[in-house]
Design a protein around this nucleic acid. Structure first.
Length: 404
DNA sequence: CACCGTTCAGTTGAACTAAGCAACGGAATTCGG
DNA sequence: GAATTCCGTTGCTTAGTTCAACTGAACGGTGGA
């Protein structure tokens, strides 16, 4: 495709040929399907808990557990949306706020969380500079003024927030209700961590999880159902090759039944097949998709991270190229230090780099384990948990974003 | 050989600091009469 | 003289630093069999 003619031909071909996708949205994870498979119990329970809202009564706070991709967020959004619809019809003053506490710089501290909610209601709270209790006051003022009688507050990945900010803030939030005059606030906490509630202040615990809903992982058969349902809408008929759905499901079931992953796998496989002008999706496309997703995921998270973070990862990747064996913190730090000086920025201390490595571990980019090597000290033993084929791509991405 | 104190290379927690930001209040400036 | 703008001060959050305590098993020495 070096000259115009070729490019014209390419675009024309692209338009004339039958697309594999009918409706790609269906396969994206922002999509909320009309019926959610294999989650009837949980949805009914949730609906039962929230139903009093329609009688202007405050429902119990709910705590939703389950691993990633088990449909927690989806089900909660589904139920709340339905209830909002009904409320709107009946003119019930109900409002829902959904916040993902994991999002950096949006809702990952107590201050930012409250500020964010207040801003959702039309408040105007700056990103920094105010004392936290001042923010609470401003928040309550905004909420009470807007005189929405009932509010559902959904806090997704609440475990991440508490890990960072401590459980004192949960207490503050649960106490909000008694401070609010015109408004009833009910909480839905969503957590990926099944053990999250252990080690939380018992007062908070009893107040936050008046009701609990547990989402079990899907098994392979259920994931297959979900994939079929969505692919019927998302793809043209007869596109999906033999065993493709099964393979996607198997991949996902291996990872604790993560349906989101299965769907993503299928979608990306479709995109890859389309790009290489195939008319069906084959098993190879799944493998390629698996790799691509892994790579993209890492690249996305990297882009959102600060410079020094990227540099740390870059150093890590550089080392791992040279020696396959496990890597230790000290190695990374010295390489990182050199790089940092070379590009003319002040290196972070080892303390911070140690934390960054822990973060990388959390993100699943690396696999780190604290080991004691006898009297040769104690360190993290690190190995990459991404395929070596993608490390080069990632290195280039970092290079680019750092102007190396 | 079994046992035990030493030792290393980080890990981890807590206190602290610098950079940004907003609000406050007083000083300086502007404005209309 | 009142209203408005400007500017320094204070107090906040947050990312990162400094300090220091803590860790846990291999090493190497000891003593007993």
């Amino acid at each position: 495709m070096t000259n115009k003619k070729d490019l014209n031909k390419f675009f024309n071909d692209f338009l004339t040929k039958n697309p594999l996708f009918l409706n790609k949205k269906v396969l994206q994870d922002s999509y909320t399907p009309e019926n959610i498979e294999h989650r009837d119990d949980q949805i009914n329970t949730l609906a039962g808990i929230l139903a009093p809202l329609l009688r202007l009564e405050k429902p119990s706070n709910v705590f939703v557990y389950g691993k990633t991709g088990t449909g927690k967020t989806l089900s909660v959004k589904y139920v709340t949306k339905k209830i909002l619809d009904v409320a709107k019809e009946k003119n019930i003053p109900l409002k829902m706020v959904y916040l993902n506490c994991k999002l950096k710089r949006i809702a990952d501290t107590e201050y930012r969380l409250i500020a964010q909610i207040a801003n959702e209601f039309g408040g105007n709270i700056p990103a920094t500079g105010l004392p936290t209790d001042e923010v609470y006051k401003a928040f309550m003022k905004v909420i009470d003024e807007k005189s929405n009688k009932l509010i559902i507050l959904v806090l997704d990945e609440i475990d991440q927030l508490v890990k960072k900010a401590g459980d004192g803030m949960l207490y503050n939030i649960t106490r909000l209700n008694s401070e609010l005059k015109n408004t009833e606030l009910s909480l839905i906490g969503i957590s990926n961590d099944l053990l999250f509630m252990d080690g939380i202040d018992p007062r908070v615990k009893s107040s936050l999880s008046e009701e609990e809903v547990l989402f079990y992982p899907y098994n392979a058969i259920q994931i297959q159902d979900i994939l079929r349902q969505r692919s019927n809408v998302g793809f043209r008929k007869e596109i999906i090759g033999e065993g493709v759905i099964e393979k996607c499901a198997a991949f996902a079931a291996r990872e604790h039944g993560d349906a989101r992953r299965a769907l993503e796998l299928l979608r990306v496989a479709g995109e890859l097949a389309e790009r290489s002008n195939k008319i069906t999706i084959t098993l190879e496309d799944i493998d390629a998709a698996e790799e691509k997703i892994e790579c993209d995921k890492v690249i996305d998270t990297i882009h959102a991270q600060p410079k020094q973070f990227q540099l740390t990862l870059y150093s890590l990747l550089s080392i791992s190229e040279q020696k396959k064996k496990s890597i230790f913190t000290g190695d990374i730090y010295s390489v990182y230090h050199d790089f940092s000086i070379k590009i003319g920025s002040k290196p972070l201390t080892q303390r911070r780099v140690s934390d960054i490595i822990a973060e990388l571990d959390m993100m699943g980019i690396i696999n780190a384990r604290v080991v004691s090597k006898g009297r040769y000290g104690r360190t993290r033993e690190i190995c990459l948990s991404i395929p070596t084929s993608t490390t080069n791509v990632i290195k280039n991405v970092i290079k680019e974003s750092l102007n190396l």
